[in-house]
């Protein structure tokens, strides 16, 4: 087939018609050479497609390998759960919870009075509290961390207080918040603030203390202004540490908000969970648990993604 193609191509060249009809010896050689070249090219293409197919297969295999164990784990988990429902009959099985979740998430944003709102509103309310408390903590904690890291005296001054207060359970701060703010919502935000401030202070301060002396020497030999030192050296060098602090803080804040909302009430995923316990809708409690887990996972993944973008080494 390739040979015919070559002759066809030669026929199109004007004045060469007779050559095609009765090929001269050198033309024959040319044709064979061309054909050989084309066959080689075709074989090459063939090999390349085969290679591509094999690569795709390998990639698929590695994807399967990375996903399968997780799927197997989930399957075993679901089976155990199903098995548990036969022993503890008050716990609904996976299928029942799934049906209930589909119903719940098909209308996440409805409002029927202050105590009956869609799950979407509840999640958003919790996220808003976490965002506010966490944002305020970042606003105070990160600059404080910079100061503590930069000035040794301040570090020694604050370290006993931080060491003392850091291990306190965040919920222990709730009564203080209720007393000062005389309202549940600011008290919950206060609890988030106080629990998420420590990792940010400590990690930022550590980052400042661990800036390689080499970078500071660069600043010194160039006599850079304080502003340049901060923007070009201090801040970028501390950023990875700071983001670690932020990640830890977000994790703690999301852990604590559920507990705080159970105590304070209002709208929020923690409160909703408690409310469903009072209503004895066990499916919803389980849905709440998975929802809390999922949101926490997403928050953490988002921060890991951000942190990766600022990794230089």
């Amino acid at each position: 087939m390739t040979a015919t193609l070559t002759i066809d191509a030669m026929l199109t060249t004007p004045g060469d018609a007779f050559v095609a009809a009765m090929p001269a010896p050198e033309a024959v050689v040319e044709i064979t050479a061309l054909t050989a070249k084309q066959i080689a090219a075709a074989a090459d293409r063939e090999a390349q497609t085969q290679l591509a197919v094999r690569r795709r297969r390998e990639r698929l295999a590695s994807l399967v390998q990375s996903i399968v164990p997780g799927l197997v784990g989930i399957l075993i988990f679901l089976l155990l759960w199903q098995g548990l429902t036969h022993v503890a009959t008050q716990i609904p099985g996976p299928a029942k919870v799934w049906d209930s979740a589909v119903k719940l998430f098909s209308d996440p944003f409805y409002r029927k009075g202050p105590n009956d709102q869609g799950i979407g509103w509840n999640i958003l309310a919790s996220l808003q509290r976490v965002g506010l408390g966490f944002g305020l903590a970042a606003l105070v904690g990160i600059p404080a961390g910079f100061m503590i890291g930069r000035f040794e005296y301040l570090n020694r001054m604050t370290s006993p207080i931080i060491s003392l207060l850091r291990p306190v359970s965040p919920l222990a701060w709730l009564p203080i918040g209720l007393m000062v703010f005389k309202a549940a919502n600011p008290a919950a935000i206060w609890v988030i603030f106080i629990c998420s401030i420590w990792p940010m202070i400590i990690n930022t301060a550590t980052g400042v203390q661990r800036i390689p002396q080499d970078y500071l020497n660069v600043a010194r030999v160039l006599n850079l202004s304080e502003w340049k030192v901060f923007t070009k050296i201090l801040f970028p060098a501390v950023l990875p540490y700071m983001l670690t602090g932020v990640k830890l803080s977000i994790g703690v804040a999301w852990l604590v908000i559920v507990a705080a909302e159970m105590l304070t009430g209002g709208v929020g995923i923690g409160f909703w969970l408690w409310d469903e316990w009072n209503n004895l809708v066990v499916e919803h409690i389980i849905i709440a648990i998975f929802t809390i887990g999922l949101v926490g996972l997403l928050l953490e993944q988002a921060l890991i993604w951000i942190a990766k973008r600022f990794q230089f080494d």
Binding site: N217, N223, K232, I233
Partner: peptide, 20 residues
């Protein structure tokens, strides 16, 4: 009396800022 840009220093371990 202190460091200054009238003296250029090349450090042993290059000391480049990795984010720039």
């Amino acid at each position: 009396s202190g460091p200054g840009p009238d003296r250029g220093v090349v450090f042993q371990n290059h000391s480049l800022l990795p984010w720039l």
